[in-house]
């Protein structure tokens, strides 16, 4: 704890000290950190004299520091709540940047087929209602798969994370029981199961424990060549997660996109949409304390839409769909 506190203090001190005109500090989500680092480095290279520092301290800390004006901008995997918005000292605007997804993963000895899941089945596994791999409901959507008569070990993320937020947001939408008993948050009270720290912890536990079931970020699963299940979407189709199906989910949700971009796109409509998807956002002050910094942020966002988005698929992030990118381009003009 001491280390974390010290880290926080260091971030605070750092943010306060370096108030150079062209040096910006941001803090927040860890999930988009690889692509943000790449973007900020490339932007700095093509814009001499500008430097953007980003610290991946977590979405919660990102929201806190940005709302208090400790950093020039924040980043979060989950949208801020209405209460957080109204309590914030610095009014923040959500700019979606890229998309992520969460995939179900499992380890059943003797089963090599790609298993199909639906939202209510996943919710009931974590509620402790479905306890056996042999359950009639799992068998019904996986015909031909010889599921063993063995207890399921549900594995969840014990550390607070955007991954858990997206996952529980989806489960709360598809299961009213899950919404009442658990709800959505970066960490929740899981009725059953075992908690593991980080994607690597969950993945390691699932790999090592026979008959286990867990959830990890799509990027982590792809980069580590893990096999994962397909999930039934709102249109009733079974979809495998990929950068394309995740972007499709965002495109499907774009029709109902509110002006402040604070939207959940889990269980999105559209035949191709992968249901456990989400935006990740940059939290930009509506009015930057230093107008020069505000100009740099606006310019960076324009650069991101024009150049940055193309690099996303190479890093297995899903880029914004065209209709959303257009809407973001329009919104940037209102920032000061």
């Amino acid at each position: 704890m001491k280390l974390k506190l010290m880290g926080l203090v260091a971030t605070v001190a750092f943010g306060a000290l370096s108030a150079g005109a062209q040096s910006l500090n941001g803090a927040g989500a860890t999930f988009p950190n690889p692509i943000y680092s790449k973007w900020f480095a490339e932007y700095a290279a093509s814009h001499p004299g500008v430097q953007i520092n980003y610290q991946s301290v977590g979405s919660g800390a990102g929201i806190r520091q940005a709302s208090q004006g400790i950093v020039d901008f924040g980043a979060s995997d989950g949208p801020m709540t209405d209460q957080q918005m109204s309590e914030a000292k610095v009014k923040l605007f959500h700019i979606p940047t890229v998309l992520g997804a969460v995939v179900p993963t499992y380890n059943i000895p003797g089963v090599n087929a790609e298993l199909k899941f639906s939202g209510d089945i996943i919710a009931d596994i974590y509620l402790g209602k479905i306890t056996n791999w042999n359950d009639a409901r799992i068998k019904a959507i996986n015909p031909g798969v010889n599921l063993p008569d063995h207890q399921i070990l549900p594995v969840y993320r014990s550390d607070g994370s955007g991954t858990t937020y997206i996952f529980t947001d989806y489960l709360s939408k598809v299961s009213s029981d899950f919404q009442q008993k658990v709800g959505k948050s970066t960490s929740v009270r899981w009725p059953v199961g075992i908690g593991q720290k980080g994607n690597e912890g969950v993945a390691g536990m699932v790999r090592n424990s026979p008959y286990s079931f867990g959830y990890v970020e799509l990027i982590y699963a792809v980069q580590n060549h893990m096999s994962f299940g397909v999930v039934k979407n709102a249109a009733g189709k079974f979809v495998k997660a990929s950068t394309d199906s995740v972007t499709a989910a965002a495109a499907g949700a774009a029709a109902h996109m509110p002006d402040d971009f604070r939207v959940s796109i889990t269980n999105a409509p559209g035949a191709e949409a992968y249901p456990i998807s989400s935006f990740t956002w940059l939290l930009i002050p509506l009015q930057s304390a230093d107008p020069k910094k505000g100009e740099v942020l606006k310019d960076f966002l324009k650069w991101m839409l024009a150049n940055g988005e193309q690099q996303a698929p190479a890093l297995t992030y899903a880029p914004l769909p065209k209709n959303v990118a257009l809407k973001v381009a329009g919104a940037i003009n209102y920032l000061k």
């Binding site: 704890m1 974390k4 301290v57 977590g58 979405s59 919660g60 800390a61 929201i63 806190r64 989950g78 709540t81 209460q83 957080q84 014990s158 550390d159 607070g160 994370s161 955007g162 948050s185 970066t186 960490s187 908690g195 720290k197």
Partner: peptide, 13 residues
Amino acid sequence: ASVIANEFTEATG
């Protein structure tokens, strides 16, 4: 100690 290590960074609210 574990719960602090796990949940401190992402604690919202």
